[in-house]
Amino acid sequence: MEKKVFKRTGGLTDIPMRYCPGCGHGIIHRLVAEVIEELGVQKRTIGIAPVGCSVFADEYFNCDMIQPPHGRGPAVATGMKRIRPDCVVFSYQGDGDLASIGMAETVHAAARAENITIIFVNNAIYGMTGGQMAPTTLIGMKSTTSPFGRDVKRAGYPIRMCEFLAALDAPGYLVRVSVHKPANVMKAKKAVKKAFQVQMEGLGFSMVEIISQCPTDWFLTPLQAVEYVEKQMIPYYPLGEYKTPFKKEEGKKEAKDKIEVEFRTDFN
């Protein structure tokens, strides 16, 4: 007799995704959807789609969804969660959405300790508009608005959001993960689950920054893109937990230097 060892998560709709080959969004959508399903909160989850490639998240996630203006996800999430504290509210955002145009909304939602979860997909580029420079574009990285490579004299430095938000007292859970290798994908899922659990336990603002790959706008093959994440992105954006309510006081520096993450497993 055959045994079913893999099935499509009910957390996603049947609509086929239209992301490019090698793009991280599909994986990340799936992780979030699986977590929602596993936590048994699918019937009371509201998702917020960003503006950018993943604007279509409102078609893909199999729960109530809203699509607000570019960068305003955390503000919309604030209004929703305050009115429906019984619901699980997550805002799915890209780097332009979260760290550029929506920086104020992000920082203040975090500072107010809004009990919401942010899934922050950092692929260092504006995908949908055609590969322009993002606030997280690495130094020297080429984009259609930094064609000679990001020059710090003209375009400044990339922003590390986890480290930035960790300076605030309020956030409950801040973590950076990646989805460029199977092992990292598994860790990413655990981080997403933990972030949702932080919200469900009322422990405040949680954000999972996910380093993702964009082969199309990086002008790389999917394989080369994975290598780029490993060799270029992660050294600048170290993986790890930057704030967690589950451990004793952890020095910022310690977290920052730590690349491999130890996840608490007693939730799983």
Binding site: I46, I66, V76, T78, G79, A104, E105, H108
Partner: peptide, 24 residues
């Protein structure tokens, strides 16, 4: 009820967007 002093008018209008979409 809930009162929030928002970080900006931009955030304020979006907060009420979310709250109204949830029925308030």
């Amino acid at each position: 009820g809930t009162f929030i002093q928002a970080e900006s008018e931009v955030a304020a209008i979006n907060m009420i967007f979310g709250a109204s979409a949830c029925g308030a």
